[in-house]
């Protein structure tokens, strides 16, 4: 019963918050509601008993990706409303409606087939994290390793790009640590 209540509550809130994200003209509202919605999505995982995924959702989406978004948003004036330049409302509705329809179709198709069952049943006695590990290191080993390598490459690249000229002073050709300005002793 609690799961039911939690599910519907989270659903309503998540949809509402995403609505705000889309509809709001204010960057701050959009960002805040998006982040909150992400948190609520992690709630679904917790309801489903997938604690690990829930936490990962929290850390990755809320902690990392959203923070990067927000970092980018700092280049705008967060206190001002954004004016949309929307020239063709009909087109926007058409495209939005079509993509929504496609998504509904994709997700509704398995229901129709009523043949949903877990490919990898939960192992008795093993924790949530272990289950994820088992799946990752068996069926999805190759994609996982590829993703890992990709991430490592990205990280190293990032460090190199960022650290390339870190020691170079932009204001002086001399190293700033090297000198102290002292008043010349005038006699």
């Amino acid at each position: 019963m609690y799961e039911m209540i939690a599910f519907y509550l989270f659903s309503a809130l998540t949809i509402g918050l995403f609505m705000v994200t889309v509809m709001s003209k204010n960057v701050l509202y959009a960002m805040t509601s998006l982040a909150s919605a992400m948190v609520l999505i992690s709630g679904f995982f917790f309801i489903l008993g997938a604690d690990f995924l829930g936490v990962v959702q929290l850390i990755v989406y809320v902690g990392a990706i959203m923070a990067l978004y927000s970092f980018a948003m700092m280049f705008f004036d967060a206190t001002r409303d954004i004016k949309e330049k929307n020239t063709n409302n009909a087109l926007v509705f058409l495209l939005g409606g079509l993509s929504a329809l496609v998504l509904v179709l994709i997700f509704a198709a398995p229901i129709h087939s009523d043949a949903i069952h877990a490919l990898y049943p939960i192992h008795e006695g093993a924790g949530n994290a272990q289950d994820v590990g088992i799946v990752l290191f068996t069926k999805y080993l190759v994609p996982f390793e590829v993703a890992a390598v990709m991430l490592l490459v990205a990280m190293i690249a990032g460090i190199i790009l960022a650290g390339k000229k870190m020691d170079h002073s932009l204001t002086k050709d001399l190293d700033a640590d090297d000198e102290i300005l002292v008043v010349k002793d005038r006699k």
């Binding site: 982040a35 948190v39 992690s42 604690d51 936490v55 929290l58 850390i59 809320v62 902690g63 990392a64």
Partner: peptide
């Protein structure tokens, strides 16, 4: 979880 909440 703790790390995640602190991140949030």
């Amino acid at each position: 979880f703790v790390l995640g909440m602190m991140a949030a």
